[in-house]
């Protein structure tokens, strides 16, 4: 059977579904143990955040694609939530091994971390649906309304939906790729493309937290001896 752009996208969606077959859109037992080990249990906040972001995502999806598509948006969000919990568990296992600690209270109570991780999972789901052939222009952006709408839902659309700074999204990308070894070559390249877009453009917009951090870094370093220019 010849490989068409639609068939390629459908195969990618099928693969994603298979990989998430055993995953749940609720925290696994292992994750719940990590939550209970925290000084401040983050369970309620995490569940509440996922519910709220799920509603926001479904509404924005419906606004972009059509009001009758809210159910479709909800299905995609549930896939993203499954991936979010799966990757979170994998990340915590790696951190436990690396740091020899089991209490991740500070990280797991950091709202920006969770929103960034969920946004990255959603980006993987959305990019899978759009399909790599479509993204690479095989259909052309002007060939049909639905094609261009789907393409418009790709990065950085999710940042606006979750009201997330590109700089914070950037921070999860590498750890996400390390924690999810089943990610396909094309998806890794897509996330790398997002990374470049942030580095070259999005992180330097006027409202970016990067400027405050640079200022803070300059102030902290003011009393220290300046490093040689080459460094």
């Amino acid at each position: 059977v010849p490989q068409t752009p639609i068939r390629a996208a459908m195969n990618s969606i099928q693969q994603l579904r298979v990989e998430l077959t055993s995953a749940s859109d609720q925290p696994s037992h292992n994750l719940q143990v990590y939550f209970k080990n925290c000084t401040v249990d983050p369970s309620e906040e995490i569940t509440k955040r996922v519910e709220e972001l799920g509603q926001v995502f479904s509404q924005k999806f419906a606004q972009a694609v059509g009001q009758r598509s809210e159910g479709l948006g909800r299905k995609r969000f549930n896939l993203g939530a499954q991936l979010y919990y799966k990757v979170m568990e994998s990340m915590l296992k790696s951190e436990e091994k690396r740091l020899s600690v089991q209490n991740f209270s500070k990280l797991l109570n950091n709202a920006t971390f969770h929103t960034s991780l969920l946004a990255c999972a959603m980006e993987v789901v959305m990019a899978t649906y759009v399909g790599n052939s479509l993204k690479n222009g095989a259909f052309g952006r002007g060939s049909g309304a639905s094609d261009s709408v789907e393409t418009d839902l790709c990065f950085p659309w999710i940042l606006g939906v979750f009201q997330l700074h590109a700089f914070d999204f950037y921070k999860v990308i590498e750890s996400f790729i390390k924690a999810e070894p089943t990610l396909k070559h094309d998806m890794m390249k897509h996330l790398e493309h997002c990374e470049h877009l942030i580095m070259e453009n999005l992180a330097w917009r006027a409202d970016s937290p990067l400027f405050d951090l640079l200022k803070q870094s300059c102030e902290e370093g003011a009393g220290e001896q300046a490093e040689p220019p080459a460094t």
């Binding site: 990340m91 690396r98 990280l107 971390f113 590498e174 750890s175 390390k178 790398e192």
Partner: peptide, 21 residues
């Protein structure tokens, strides 16, 4: 994973990036 350029050092992880211990 050979397809991606990893920039983090081995001693760095997600905890450090979100300013955690």
């Amino acid at each position: 994973s050979q397809d991606y350029h990893f920039g983090l050092e081995e001693h760095e992880g997600i905890s450090e990036l979100f300013d955690c211990d």
